[in-house]
Design a binder for these strands. Sequence first.
DNA 1: CAGTATGCTAAACCGTTGTTCAACCGGGGT
DNA 2: ACCCCGGTTGAACAACGGTTTAGCATACTG
Lengths: 236, 236
Amino acid sequence: MRTEPRSPIADLNARAKIRDAAVVHFARDGFRKANLRAIAATAGVSAGLVIHHFGSKDALRLACDDHVLGSVLARARDKATPEGLASVLQNYLADPAEFQVQIDYLSRAIAEDSPAGRQVVDAIVDETEAVVRAGAFDGSMNAFSDPRAVAVLITMTSLSMMTMASHVGRALGFDGPNLSPAAMRRMALPSAELYTHGLYADDTVLRVTTDALAGSDATTPPNHPTQTQLIRKATT
Amino acid sequence: MRTEPRSPIADLNARAKIRDAAVVHFARDGFRKANLRAIAATAGVSAGLVIHHFGSKDALRLACDDHVLGSVLARARDKATPEGLASVLQNYLADPAEFQVQIDYLSRAIAEDSPAGRQVVDAIVDETEAVVRAGAFDGSMNAFSDPRAVAVLITMTSLSMMTMASHVGRALGFDGPNLSPAAMRRMALPSAELYTHGLYADDTVLRVTTDALAGSDATTPPNHPTQTQLIRKATT
DNA sequence: CAGTATGCTAAACCGTTGTTCAACCGGGGT
DNA sequence: ACCCCGGTTGAACAACGGTTTAGCATACTG
């Protein structure tokens, strides 16, 4: 995956400076809004040099993807955290100032559905699934009919705290584009409560859902009217 | 909020056609990638006419925001569904072909953090919070220490099924940018299970979280190291 | 030392795109 | 019939931005 030049010492040169500047700009403005001249200015070089080193803006994005992804995955491996959610949140909170850029970059990548975004999401879902299965096995977590889907659900919930950080913050009365530590702290207890006791006090919703799913399983064309009733019942 | 011209009959003219075409393009390509000439072509008019009617691309976006938001909120009011999550999902599944564009448009608006996006999110969070409070009151739902934060959590989870639809689908083995009915169906039961029984089999995580929050409450500067330990403990 | 590769810049190129402008056209009022 | 006015167009304008190119300096090589 690494595509760096031969020597790791030579990596601290213009090419690396451009790449780091690009990561900042892509994270802050998104891929399309970010422009090469601004990136070059941040890196202290000319626009032409960016192309000279990376070939094109798209290739530059790939190099950034590669770099951020490698860095984050390496850190995740180092800490050897069992749960994807925990791993992400840990990196986020360990040193907000240092990792904010990478977090923002990956949030953008996920929101814009870039290759790097797909990779992180898949990695986190896989790891979360493993945790869910292990938890069910050792009894620390409930057994689910579809661990994969549960992993997806949990992953999306935690990722949404980053991709929709501004919405979360605003809904809680904070402002600023990133999720402040105070906002994160406020979400911690409710998450634990929800993941411990659930939302519903009894299992009526669950029973209605299973019934509806079983009833409409293959008896109707797989995409039209019964879905509506199912969800209506399941969430009322 | 409505800014339509006086007569609803005259609304079916070029101005409306442009607006509808713009909604499609903004939904499919995002605001920045969408361009006026393509929008004009879809509407069957010239690029100049778009400016003549709306003044600028930004103003056109506002008009689209206005239109989609009004349409969706009106429909939500009609159905009078108690729960924001349910209301959104219902519209989504009632007739995917018809509402897909509006759903996509709002997903974009939320992901790109546009004014319209903020408005829908806030509306859904508010309504969800009301449902959570009512549920706790009538005993159908568990009581939470922070209903607002729970509402945010639930809202983000359901919204992530739209803003990150491609990731959800891919993680489940489907493809395509939108969440297929089959994928939605597969998520239904796990959601019900998670919201009924929770994720954890006992309350150790919850207790650890409350302890950690209480312990670090005001004893340390509000944004640095203890947060890390808190989350590490809470999710391991 | 000559020559050649390498890192780099400045300027130009050129397609895209939001916006402006002058003209046109059909219809209603005088 | 004339005028005028709103809707509409096509061309032109101007800015932006990715990419190309020519050139320059420095360093390494024969």
